[in-house]
């Protein structure tokens, strides 16, 4: 049984702000043909939508939560159609929009009670579900939401989204702007919710969060680059990836790029990640080339690709110019 079924979904609109078309899916050669997104989410799965701002994540979430009507394609949540069976969906999903900020002038307790009532339930009825999360902020229950720290706000928002025991939880960029420690804690809470059988669709711009999902979709400019488990995506990285280091890292970057056999070269923390267009080239040869150019303490070794390497490679394949802006 699928919790979410999406087929050929697209929603393009002319953005007044940027003067360009944005949204989900991409108009292809013929005007009435659109490349939409297609994917399924299993019940009880954590499914991540990963990509930068403006890639269409929020549009997808709004369609699935019945807030927008797609231009084309179909989507079902818990078996209900997002266009025709809007009321059924609104009864059974939980949603945390990206800019969601609760009612700042109401206390923690008032916020939770209010959302419980709006969703036709009481805090007592579903306390079990939110207990683990809510207990951490319960000592501050008389404090106004506006005075909570970022991490606590996030916990309260999650409690409010969960209070009616939704079967599917939609979290649009819940960790954006949150520091790494709070982010890790938040993902811990999501794992626990998964154990209780709740399906979670979550979006994030942070590639390092991919491994916390069961499966992910990498999204760019409204289309999915790939859908798989994080490990599956990494296993499909086609090229050999080298990590290169020397005493002068910024000169190294220029020198590597100038080399004819180098396909891509990007700075990755304290090393540069290099892919070659010609796999017969050897480590020793590269080593010599760099030594000739005056580099010292050169280190070159083969490494396994990360999600970011995969994303960049896939994005390049779709839009070869995307890396040359």
């Amino acid at each position: 049984m699928y919790a979410i079924q999406v087929e050929g979904l697209s929603k393009n609109y002319h953005s007044a702000k940027s003067g360009k078309y944005a949204g989900l899916g991409k108009p292809s050669a013929s005007p009435d043909q659109v490349d939409g997104v297609t994917f399924d989410v299993h019940q009880g799965e954590i499914f991540g939508i990963i990509g930068p701002d403006g890639a269409g994540k929020t549009t997808l979430f709004r369609i699935l939560t019945t807030l927008l009507v797609p231009d084309s394609g179909t989507a079902k949540v818990d078996g209900y159609d997002v266009v025709t069976e809007l009321k059924d969906i609104r009864q059974r999903v939980g949603y945390m929009p990206g800019k969601f900020s609760l009612y700042q002038d109401m206390t923690v307790e008032e916020n939770l009670n209010f959302f419980a009532t709006v969703f036709n339930t009481t805090v007592e009825e579903n306390y079990e579900l939110v207990k683990d999360i809510y207990q951490q902020i319960e000592p501050f229950k008389t404090r106004r939401a506006g005075k909570l720290s970022g991490g606590m706000k996030q916990k309260l928002a999650l409690s409010c989204a969960l209070i009616h025991k939704p079967s599917v939880l939609f979290l649009d960029e819940p960790t954006t702007g949150v520091d790494p420690v709070s982010r890790k804690e938040f993902w811990g809470m999501l794992r626990k919710l998964k154990e209780q059988g709740i399906t979670i669709l979550v979006s994030t711009p942070y590639m390092d969060e991919a491994f916390l999902c069961d499966r992910i979709a990498l999204i760019q400019d409204g289309i999915f680059l790939q859908i798989d488990s994080p490990q599956g995506i990494i296993d499909q990285f086609a090229q050999t990836l080298w990590a290169v280091r020397s005493n002068n890292m910024s000169k190294l970057l220029r020198d590597l790029r100038a080399h004819p056999a180098v396909d891509t070269c990007f700075a990755f923390g304290d090393v540069h990640h290099v892919t070659l267009s010609n796999d017969s080239y050897t480590i020793a040869e590269l080593h010599d080339y760099l030594a000739q150019l005056g580099h010292s303490t050169i280190e070159v070794h083969v490494i396994k690709a990360g999600i970011e390497d995969c994303y960049m490679q896939l994005a390049r394949r779709v839009d070869p110019h995307s890396n040359n802006h």
């Binding site: 930068p52 701002d53 890639a55 954006t176 590639m207 760019q220 890292m249 910024s250 994303y311 994005a315």
Partner: peptide, 20 residues
């Protein structure tokens, strides 16, 4: 924040140049 990985790296290259 929110920038795609390739652009993020290009951004850092600009930072390196400035530092140089």
């Amino acid at each position: 924040g929110g920038v795609d990985p390739a652009t993020r790296r290009q951004f850092w290259e600009l930072i390196y140049e400035a530092a140089d």
